[in-house]
Amino acid sequence: MVVGDRNQRRALMALRLILLTAGVVVMLLPFAYMVSTSFKPNAMVLEIPVKFFPQHPTVANYVTAWTSNRFARYFLNSVVVAIGTTLAALLLSSMMAYAFARFRFPGRSILFGLILIALMVPTMMMLIPQFLLARDLHLLNSLWGLVAFYTGGNLGFNTFLLHSFFQDIPSELEEAMVVDGAGPWTRYWRLILPLARPALATAAIFTFLGAWDEFTWALTIINDPSKYTLPIAIALFQGQHSTSWGLVFAASVIAIAPVLVIFAIFQRQFVAGIAAGAVKA
């Protein structure tokens, strides 16, 4: 009986592994095919039968993307925008979260309620008025326009996330600092922020990725190729008459590589962030 039980358990585990592995194959196949295509010369791209391992692999697509198509520039723009957004959004939202978590003031629940309600409004709904606003503020066609609106768009969720984390920090710690004569700025900067490092890391990662991958706003306000970020550069990188898929995918690999590295390093924070209340998609 015990032996039978163990055999059954083993069979079950084997079934699990088989099913999960099948799922992984489905998950990875598109990536594998993309990478494989990026190493194919253009004439071989839509060959039948399909070849996962190109017969004459070439790095020409990567060279072309990086050199003659200025992807280095787009990469730099994306880095600047994503880092700028992350820093600004983290600072502003942690300050707001601190105010909501630790102070009582008139209008507190109304303001917090506005933030929660705005979280439910689809981002794209604001596109048209945001476009007009950016025009009036002379923020069209500029990386500042990206940073300002990405930051604004991330404030709501980050404030909410950090607010719940800040509340869980025992107030006794702060009271001890108050006794030592520390003002609210000192407490925020010296106590709350260091203690909230895990939550800040989670917020930072999601903000960075959101800004790195953002497409619609950038497509709408950026005209000048020297200000393209990677997503629009890739999307606008299609020939008029036929698409050079190898080149498109070489550029795509360049764009997602940093994301995968960040993901691999900060997996724990990813999972923590999702489990802590899920992320606005």
Partner: peptide, 15 residues
């Protein structure tokens, strides 16, 4: 399994 979630919509749409 989580890999597609962190990959950009632009890239996966083109793929």
């Amino acid at each position: 399994y989580y890999l597609p979630v962190v990959t950009s919509w632009v890239v996966v749409s083109l793929v």
